[in-house]
Structure formats: structure tokens, C-alpha cells
């Protein structure tokens, strides 16, 4: 017996496609959920991150919060919120928005912090207003790191959305849990392959996007030697990444 052949057979079985519990519908649910969660988290995290990055204030709190959130198990948060507001999509939305905020926030402010201080100083000295500095200097130069934060958040949300099928009837995760319940290994494995493919495709898209948004002047030449030393703080070793579920 070959589990993989079974899984592929399961994936190719036309019976698994139509209807609200078919593969396309589940995939659509997972994608929609991911996008909505990311938008919600971004609306909160990006402005706050920009503010922290621009002013340098509140950074300590942001670092501590994201560090603390990294330690909080997603499954615990998910089940707890589900007990509070009931089974359904509400709990995953709340829990995953909360979990997606730290990487996006970190991407936003580390992007600003990675901008050479002298460049910002010069922009101010030639007469840019604070808003113009944010718009014309900090956002374009910090964009790659922000996209990096969004990338981490996306991975985490896609992954945890799978787990969220434990508390809500939606997404590709249903195949995993349904298969687990009935010992249907083909379904479990087929669903797993779908989730992994989805994650890798999104990862690839973001990797491409991240390359695309590096401003040309920065991508073209070698950055000044001292670039790292002259940034306000070393973004250093505190990956915005939190391993998703």
C-alpha cells in the first residue's frame, strides 16, 4: 500500500470537488480567511508600526509584546477565544488577527529603523516635513522589511487557519480533522498536501514581491559599508517571524 498514491487519488477524485465541502470551496474559505485576517491586522499594525518607527517611541513595549506573543501557544489562544465567543469563525478571526499583528508591526518599525539616520537627518535639513519624510523616505526604503513582516504573518495565518478547523467548520483543515476522526489517511494526507502547496505558493509570491519592492537605487549599487552601524538600532536577531502552527 502506498499512502501517497492514495492521497493523490483522493486529490484527483472528482467527487471531492463540488459543493460547499469540496476542495475549491474549502480552499476559497481558507484564502478569504487569510486575506481578511491580514487586512484586519495590517490596518492596526502598520500605522502603529510606522509611528513607532518614525518617532522611536514605544519600541520597548512593541518588542516585549511581540516577544511575549511568540511564547503564547496559538492553539491555546484559539480554544480559549472559542470558548468565550462560541464555535464558529469569530474565534479564529480574533485569535489570528492578534497573532498576525506582531510580525507586521515589527516589519513596519524595523523597516523604518533600518533607514540610515543620516538620510533622514538630511531630508529634514533640506526642509521635508515629518509627513514627507515618512512618505518619501521612510516608507519606500522600509518597504522590503514591511513586506517581510507581511510574509511572516501570512505564513502564520495560513498555517494556523488550518488548525482553526478544530474550532470552526471551515477551510482545508477540515480535511485533516475529518480524516483523523475516521482514520481516512488518504484524506488527511491529501488535505495536508493542499495546505502545504498553498503555503509554499504564498511564500513564493511574497518572496517575489519582496524583491520587487526594493527601491532601485538600493538594489543597484552596494549599500554604503557602514549602513548597519549607522542605523539607529540594529534590527539584529529578533526575527519578526513567529512559527505558525
Amino acid at each position: 500500500m502506498n499512502y501517497f498514491t492514495d492521497a493523490v487519488a483522493w486529490l484527483l477524485d472528482p467527487a471531492h470537488y463540488p459543493g460547499p465541502t469540496g476542495i475549491p470551496a474549502r480552499l476559497g474559505e481558507q484564502l478569504l480567511f487569510t486575506v481578511v485576517t491580514l487586512v484586519l491586522a495590517s490596518v492596526i499594525a502598520i500605522p502603529v508600526g510606522f509611528l513607532i518607527g518614525h518617532t522611536g517611541r514605544g519600541r520597548g513595549i512593541a518588542v516585549a509584546t511581540s516577544g511575549g506573543l511568540r511564547a503564547i501557544p496559538t492553539l491555546g489562544l484559539l480554544t480559549l477565544v472559542a470558548l468565550w465567543i462560541g464555535i464558529g469563525l469569530g474565534a479564529p478571526y480574533v485569535a489570528l488577527t492578534v497573532l498576525a499583528i506582531p510580525p507586521i508591526l515589527a516589519g513596519a518599525y524595523t523597516g523604518f529603523e533600518a533607514v540610515n539616520r543620516a538620510t533622514i537627518d538630511a531630508a529634514r535639513a533640506v526642509g521635508m516635513t515629518e509627513l514627507q519624510i515618512v512618505r518619501h523616505v521612510e516608507i519606500p526604503l522600509g518597504l522590503p522589511l514591511l513586506i517581510g513582516g507581511l510574509r511572516s504573518a501570512t505564513l502564520q495565518v495560513v498555517a494556523t487557519a488550518t488548525l482553526a478547523a478544530y474550532v470552526a467548520d471551515f477551510g482545508l483543515g477540515r480535511f485533516l480533522f475529518a480524516g483523523l476522526k475516521t482514520n481516512d489517511y488518504a484524506q488527511m494526507l491529501g488535505g495536508s498536501i493542499l495546505v502545504i502547496l498553498l503555503a509554499l505558493v504564498l511564500e513564493g509570491l511574497f518572496a517575489g514581491l519582496q524583491k520587487l519592492v526594493v527601491p532601485r537605487g538600493v538594489a543597484v549599487g552596494r549599500p554604503p559599508v557602514d549602513r548597519k552601524a549607522s542605523t539607529r538600532r540594529r534590527p539584529g536577531m529578533e526575527p519578526a517571524i513567529t512559527k505558525g502552527i
Binding site: L176, I193, E203, I241
Partner: peptide, 18 residues
């Protein structure tokens, strides 16, 4: 390494045994 990191954990737990 980056790709491995991108694989969601629940599916990985299902696939590893195979």
C-alpha cells in the same frame, strides 16, 4: 531551510509518518 519553515506544522505532522 526557508521552505521547510513555511510548511504548516499540522500537515507536516500528518506527512512525516509516511
Amino acid at each position: 531551510a526557508g521552505l521547510f519553515y513555511a510548511i504548516p506544522s499540522l500537515p507536516l505532522l500528518f506527512i512525516l509518518p509516511v
